[in-house]
């Protein structure tokens, strides 16, 4: 990624199995902002990682069927995930954990086994409404047999949390990106934060891509071409339709959404992948600006997302 045109400064490091980026408008505040981001990521990983046997969520699974005390962070992260499920009518559902594991995403992505037979065809998610969170008392009741996967929202929640905390503490504008899920807070650059939107967050800055500016809130991209592997000889990606337990339909390669927060952007982009062909209308009625790239590369923009500026890019717009 080329150096930004403003007087900002950035730090990049590996975290949560992806790339973490923090950008500040005051270069001398970079170290503090990076420290805050690292603290938030360490805490989120320890609370929410289903790949760590010592994580709080692994302990919760071990105590399924009984009310268990939980940290403020896990309580909040689970409440955020349940809210995402409620506002999408279950298109994004944290109880999809067993299905995601059955498809083979049962360890840190770098260690996922490339291809073996699919042992058992996953079924529908048990349902987010079966999980009880008491936010005031910080207690969680996870029914037996329900496995949580907070992957869809916990990372975005961490981006919102870190950007907000760093902006408050440093007093400058802060952008946090976790694997391409972007949150901004504080007073940003005068012309907005410039974000390159592409199929792959690692190369979007180098490849021909949409270049947009955002002023506040969040921007997230969900993809069926990143984090892919094979099961039973069939290509598999990490987004499961909670209603069936099957892979989300191969309609969109990537969906990028802008919203009031990174969590809301990520919730909508994940829901759009699951919805498939119905996604543009679903996004438009919610006034969520979005850029959807079909599996054949055609670009659809929705609800005020700028028309594709790539040379040769062809656009099919959907009115808000």
């Amino acid at each position: 990624v080329k150096a930004p045109s403003t007087g900002s400064a950035r730090a990049t490091f590996a975290a949560l199995g992806t790339t973490a980026v923090v950008v500040v408008t005051e270069p001398r505040r970079l170290d503090r902002a990076e420290q805050i981001l690292r603290e938030v990521l360490d805490a989120i990983d320890l609370a929410c990682s289903r790949f760590r046997s010592d994580s709080e969520i692994s302990g919760l699974h071990a105590h399924a069927g009984r009310t268990a005390p939980a940290s403020a962070l896990l309580t909040d992260a689970l409440a955020v995930a349940l809210r995402a499920a409620a506002v999408t009518d279950g298109l994004v559902d944290p109880t999809v954990g067993a299905a995601v594991r059955a498809w083979g995403y049962d360890r840190d992505f770098a260690s996922v086994v490339p291809d073996v037979a699919l042992v058992e065809r996953p079924g529908p998610a048990p349902g987010w409404w079966r999980v009880t969170v008491d936010e005031r008392r910080r207690e969680i009741l996870l029914p037996r047999g329900v496995h949580l996967d907070l992957g869809a929202t916990a990372k975005a929640y961490a981006a919102d949390l870190a950007a907000g905390r760093a902006a408050r503490e440093t007093g400058c504008g802060v952008l946090v990106s976790l694997g391409g899920d972007v949150a901004v807070a504080g007073r940003g650059p005068a012309d907005g934060w410039r974000v390159a939107v592409g199929d792959d967050h690692a190369t979007a800055g180098d490849q021909p891509a949409d270049l947009v500016t955002v002023q506040s809130g969040g921007l997230a991209t969900s993809s069926t071409t990143r984090r892919t592997w094979r099961r039973g000889g069939r290509p598999v990606h990490h987004i499961v339709d909670p209603r069936t337990g099957d892979q989300a339909p191969p309609v969109w390669r990537t969906v990028s959404v802008a919203a009031g927060s990174c969590v809301d952007a990520n919730t909508a982009s994940t829901a759009a992948i699951v919805l498939g062909a119905a996604a543009p209308d679903w996004l438009a009625v919610r006034r969520l600006p979005a850029r959807l790239v079909s599996t054949d590369g055609g670009v659809t923009t929705v609800a005020g997302w700028p028309a594709d500026t790539r040379p040769g890019g062809h656009v099919q717009g959907v009115a808000a």
Binding site: G180, A209, T213
Partner: peptide
């Protein structure tokens, strides 16, 4: 349609086109 505090919050402003080169961050598949 869920909106407001109980729904998915739209952005205060839609993304605007940016021209030229250089970006603060990238948003791609993850």
């Amino acid at each position: 349609v869920p909106q407001g505090s109980s729904g998915i919050q739209p952005p205060a402003q839609a993304p605007a086109p940016a021209f030229g080169s250089g970006s603060h961050a990238s948003s791609g598949g993850s």
